[in-house]
Design a protein around this nucleic acid. Structure first.
Length: 420
DNA sequence: AGTATGCAAATAAGG
DNA sequence: CCCTTATTTGCATAC
């Protein structure tokens, strides 16, 4: 099987913004490199080539938690932020409404302060009829978020979180009260002129034929663009796509990460814990992508409530004792989505050889193959479907090379046409 | 030892 | 039921 597989183009369909050279193989500096453990420069997100780090003096510390500033300073900054009113971006979650007093604790559950307001007047707070576990979600309230070291890294007001510093130790500009900020967390894309972008973004790449039927029902206006891309592109980013408020998503993603870190949890732990809950489960990858906004608006919208609910519960448990939290995140998984099958190399070899002979095995054949390899018949069927799809896409790409590069190419007769 | 990411399973939707 | 096409999502592993 000389062909496929090996000629898989390393192209990444999704990214590749037309803008400045996004880093594709940013690293690849194979052996001998003196690379630091944490290679920060690889994010396709920060697209500013010239960068704009405010402080030229601050060397990017590889360490995550460093006591760059005395807690006091941080606290002060925090307070400053608090003073200004808050923005209260609507709310996906009905629970976070009651504004009550709260103890300020660190990750160890130690009380490090209080915020005088009103005692918790927990209402009925029935959590989604899902009838999930046995706990009620208390409204989260104005409180300081701290990391495992007890450092204050953000403040929470309502469901709005005001980050003080990020994990890199870089100070984030506080959110202006009463105003929707429009800047990315890590970079400051100089917004020249904020136009009420109405244009439908300019696809400069994949001209994959779009079955534009008639009018409405533009099922995919944001076709494959991630939230991160959309949101960091003031030019073409109407902060709302497909009825999804990108700003809100971005805010939440950022807040989520802070809250997660505050609880001292890793993406892996969250993913694992999530798979044990009632709703849909998500892997570490998913958490990661969500936090990075490396997902479509649609997906983000779908995941957000799940994470929101989970986080609320995790925080509640955290407040009521470390034990509860660990217990919470320790529950055993209960997969919803079928676990992804990993074919053995041997199995793949056989599957491929079959595929080369016939891309459309009959039901009978597939049953036999499945039996022989000891995989679910359905799994084998799907494998063929995916294989066909992959092949088709490859051919399509080969037939339609990059812009400019005109290459004759042979017709590449494909056996995938039409199905009986 | 966490997080980011490539590739491809799994799923959704329309036929 | 099977197919295709488009998309979502996770395993495996690079970083």
């Amino acid at each position: 099987m000389p062909s496929h597989h090996s000629l898989t183009p390393p192209l990444k369909l999704q990214a590749a913004g037309p803008s400045t050279g996004n880093a594709f193989s940013c690293t690849t500096s194979s052996l001998g490199s003196v690379q630091s453990a944490q290679s920060p420069p690889c994010h396709k997100q920060n697209q500013s080539p010239a960068h704009s780090l405010p402080s030229p003096v601050t060397p990017p510390l590889p360490l995550q938690i460093n006591p760059l500033a005395g807690p006091g300073a941080v606290a002060a900054a925090t307070m400053g932020s608090i003073t200004g009113s808050q923005v209260f971006g609507n709310s996906a979650m009905p629970s976070l409404h009651g504004v009550t007093g709260q103890l300020v604790t660190n990750a160890q559950g130690q009380i490090i302060g209080t915020i005088p307001l009103m005692p918790n007047s927990s209402g009925p707070s029935n959590q989604t009829g899902g009838g999930s576990s046995s706990l009620q979600v208390q409204p989260i309230t104005p409180q300081l978020l701290t990391n495992a070291q007890g450092q204050i890294i953000a403040t929470v007001i309502g469901n709005q979180i005001l980050p003080v510093i990020n994990t890199q130790g870089i100070t984030l500009s506080p959110i202006k009260p009463g105003q929707q900020l429009s800047q990315t967390a890590q970079t400051q894309p100089p917004p020249p002129v904020s136009q009420p972008g109405l244009l439908r973004m300019s696809h400069s790449q994949s001209p994959l034929r779009e079955a534009s039927s008639s009018s409405s029902t533009s099922s995919s206006s944001s076709s494959a663009l991630s939230v991160g891309q959309l949101v960091s592109n003031p030019q073409t980013a109407p902060s709302e796509v497909d009825g999804v408020n990108l700003e809100e998503i971005r805010e939440f993603a950022k807040a989520f990460k802070i809250r997660r870190l505050s609880l001292g949890l890793t993406q892996t732990q969250v993913g694992q814990a999530l798979s044990a809950t009632e709703g849909p489960a998500y892997s570490q990858s998913a958490i990661c992508r969500f936090e990075k906004l490396d997902i479509t608006p649609k997906s983000a919208q779908k995941i957000k409530p799940v994470l929101e609910r989970w986080m609320a519960e995790a925080e509640a448990r955290h407040r009521s004792g470390m034990q509860n939290l660990t217990e919470f995140i320790g529950s055993e998984p209960s997969k919803k989505r079928k676990r992804r099958t990993s074919f053995t190399p041997q199995a793949l070899e056989i599957l491929n050889s079959h595929f080369e002979k016939n891309t459309h095995p009959s039901g009978q054949e597939m049953t036999e193959i499945a039996e022989k390899l000891n995989y679910d018949r359905e799994v084998v069927r799907v494998w063929f479907c995916n294989k066909r799809q992959a092949l088709k896409n490859t051919i399509k790409r080969l037939k339609q090379p990059e812009l400019g590069v005109v290459s004759p190419m042979d017709p590449l007769a494909d056996p995938l046409e039409e199905h009986p």
